[in-house]
Simulated assay, not measured.
Amino acid sequence: MQPIFITLNSFQSKEVQEKGQGHFFPLIAHAGAQGAEIRRELFSEEGGSLQDLRTQLEEAHLTSVYSAPVDLFNVLGSLNKEAAALTVMEAITLGASLVKFSLGHYNMQRSSVTELKEWLASLSPNDHNLQITIENDQTNHGGSLEKIHHFLKEAKEQHVPVKMTFDIGNWSFTGEDVFSAAKVLSEYVVYLHFKHIEQQNGRLVTLPLPAGETSEWRELVSHFSNDIPRAIEFPISDGNEACSYTALLANA
């Protein structure tokens, strides 16, 4: 059975910001999930420290992933060093096993993967068992299959310790084919985000996974290794739904 994570943005954002992300850890643990994805964008000024969250995670017997809305490469195609370094340090403080960035404005001609390798070595994430990943986001620049594949191929060739978080739903926002992306990128993927996307009233909306045996997401999982952690990233209203969807995803 694959480890299941529940992202904190699966719950109502206002409630998460008011109560704090740690408030949901018992619910996540009770649902049978093994981990929580902490979201930097849901921190509130009144919230506790990262160390407090780490303690709460340990008390709930949960592991963690850290997600921050930070581009690895800035609009000039250069490394976004200051913001990315801060994010890595936050993930280490949290005790996260994985940190997730957006690729950002990676330029296939100008952006330096060699510089990335040297910069990462200075941060020593491996000393803290922290895996660095980039995710296909919902932007045309950060969700480009061509750019993501180019970057990950370069990183592999140069032994740069960066892998991929593959979000099955975000390809809908960038007009890419999810099965083509899975075929090309599966060897780099270490973490999977699950959501269902439909067009409603002229816009794309995120919905829970359909349970049907012929649902597209069920076919997609066959492209990836069975031991890759899977994350729920779609609306959950209560503990019963959390239990139901955790079981659905774990047993697919």
Rank of each mutant, 00 (worst) to 15 (best):
H150Y: 10
A83D: 08
T7P: 00
S144N: 14
Q200Y: 13
N201V: 09
A242G: 07
E118G: 05
K156V: 03
L220S: 08
A68T: 00
L42M: 04
L72I: 06
F151E: 07
E241N: 05
H61P: 02
T139A: 10
A96W: 09
A182S: 15
V70E: 02
H128M: 07
Q109A: 14
L76K: 14
R230Q: 15
L192I: 13
E46K: 15
G95Q: 13
N126Y: 10
N136L: 04
V75D: 15
D167T: 04
M164N: 02
K183D: 12
A85M: 04
R40W: 12
L62A: 08
R39M: 13
F101C: 07
A85T: 15
L130K: 13
N201Q: 14
Q34V: 04
A68L: 03
E176Y: 04
E15P: 02
V70P: 00
L120R: 02
N9T: 08
S64P: 07
G48D: 06
G142D: 09
L220V: 05
K183E: 15
L98W: 00
A83Y: 08
A29I: 00
K153H: 11
F194T: 12
S13P: 10
V16T: 06
A36V: 08
S122I: 04
G212R: 10
L185V: 05
L130D: 11
L27H: 02
F224V: 11
R230A: 12
N240K: 13
V184S: 14
K195R: 04
H223F: 15
L207M: 14
H23L: 05
K183M: 11
L72N: 05
L204K: 13
G47E: 14
I134C: 13
N170Y: 02
L152A: 08
E41V: 01
I148H: 10
L116G: 02
I168D: 03
G202L: 08
S144T: 02
F11V: 01
H23K: 08
E37W: 04
A33I: 09
I197V: 15
G95D: 12
V65A: 15
T165S: 04
T133H: 09
G20K: 07
V65P: 05
E18S: 12
N140E: 14
